[in-house]
Amino acid sequence: MEQEKFMMQQQKITGKIDPRTLIESRLQLHYAVQVIDAIASTLAEPKPDYSHTSFGWNSELKVFVGELIPAAKSFRVALEPVSLTSLILDEQNQKIAEFSLHQKTLAEQINWYKKEIATLGADADKVVLPSYPRADFPDDKIAHGADFDANKGKSGRQELANYYAITNLLLQEIVAKEEGASSIHIWPHHFDIAILVTVGNISNGEPITVGIGMSPGDTNYNEPYWYVSPYPSPEITNLTELASGGFWHTQDWVGAVLKASNVSGEGEEKIKQIQAFLDSALQGSKSLLKV
């Protein structure tokens, strides 16, 4: 864990950017990573929980990176978020090819990928981007043929990358402590980074779980926020206190929430507040679930 602690100290949510102003940066990233899902959905080894369609954060390369795709020369697809550069990596995460998304469309991005992965022996004809806007997916001009613009929102994308990097490390710590914790996944549809912790026996045919993660912003809150969501949804008559300015969200779903705008201070101080919130919310969720 010493390496994780060292890396934590190197990550900073600057606080110089109002998290409520990151919407445009978030939307560009959200659309840019969809090709990872499109390729994995058709070419990766399928998994029952669909986690093959998810991707992760590579803390060394500072990129979003997908599952290994088997081919004559196996590969992964990735995105460097700050420069908005699509990447193809080999099994050792060495770069095979790259493509700047600046002044390029979604169609140009997917066509470049298909051309490149065909040379690696993949069945590129299977790969198709879904139509946009999809259900419960943010609409944006990129969905309608507009170019990506790497010159706009660069500092915002760096800030968002730091949110993912820090949350990835915090979730690693929880995974190391919680026996029932899943691997860490970033899910393409909602763009949230999360784990699922199984905390109890099956209830009504389903396991008792707590979802823990971070959303970069959505229709619930227009800024990054951390969430801890117990399942099945507990009664809301006896909700527990939460650390660091966290609160319980109770409309449509029940979960503890900490908005980025409620995290004060700088650097490590911010990280400690987020960690305290996650710890209190996980323990509170277990209490509500009576496990």
Rank of each mutant, 00 (worst) to 15 (best):
A135P: 06
R157I: 07
S233Q: 13
T240W: 00
Q28L: 06
V127A: 02
T219W: 04
E159D: 09
E91H: 05
V197G: 03
H52S: 10
A72C: 02
G265V: 03
W187Y: 13
E80F: 02
K290F: 02
P224V: 09
D37I: 00
L84T: 11
E206F: 10
Y50I: 11
Y31C: 06
N222D: 12
P188F: 13
K259A: 08
N58Y: 06
E159C: 03
K152W: 04
I193W: 03
G56H: 06
L89G: 08
E2M: 09
I69W: 01
K115T: 15
G145S: 11
Y163W: 14
A72P: 00
I271Y: 02
L61M: 13
S83D: 12
E241W: 00
Y163N: 02
E241D: 14
A38Y: 01
E45P: 01
D149E: 12
L106R: 12
E241Y: 01
N168S: 15
K177H: 12
T198Y: 02
T209L: 03
K47A: 12
A44K: 01
A135S: 13
F148C: 05
E2K: 09
S41R: 09
A260D: 00
K290A: 13
V128Q: 14
A260Q: 05
D147N: 15
E60H: 11
D252S: 14
L289A: 05
D49A: 11
D279T: 15
A122L: 01
P46A: 07
V228Y: 02
A124P: 02
T237C: 00
Q109L: 14
Y50C: 11
S83T: 14
G145C: 11
S86Y: 10
D37F: 08
Q10A: 13
E223D: 02
S83W: 01
L68G: 06
P224F: 04
Y221I: 11
E266K: 12
I166D: 00
R157M: 05
R26K: 15
E206N: 13
P133M: 10
P19A: 08
A143Y: 03
S203F: 12
I117E: 05
N222C: 01
S41K: 07
L242I: 04
Q11N: 11
H102D: 15
P138F: 09
V291K: 09
P207W: 08
L129H: 04
A78N: 02
L239Y: 03
P207N: 10
A176M: 08
N58V: 05
L160W: 01
D140S: 15
R26H: 10
S59I: 11
A135G: 10
V254W: 03
P230R: 06
A276S: 15
L160G: 07
M214H: 05
D147I: 04
S183V: 12
Y163S: 04
E4L: 12
V127E: 03
D147Y: 13
A72L: 10
I142L: 15
N262P: 00
L278T: 09
I202R: 12
V291H: 03
Q3N: 13
E116L: 01
G284I: 05
T119N: 12
P81A: 06
S285R: 04
F148Y: 14
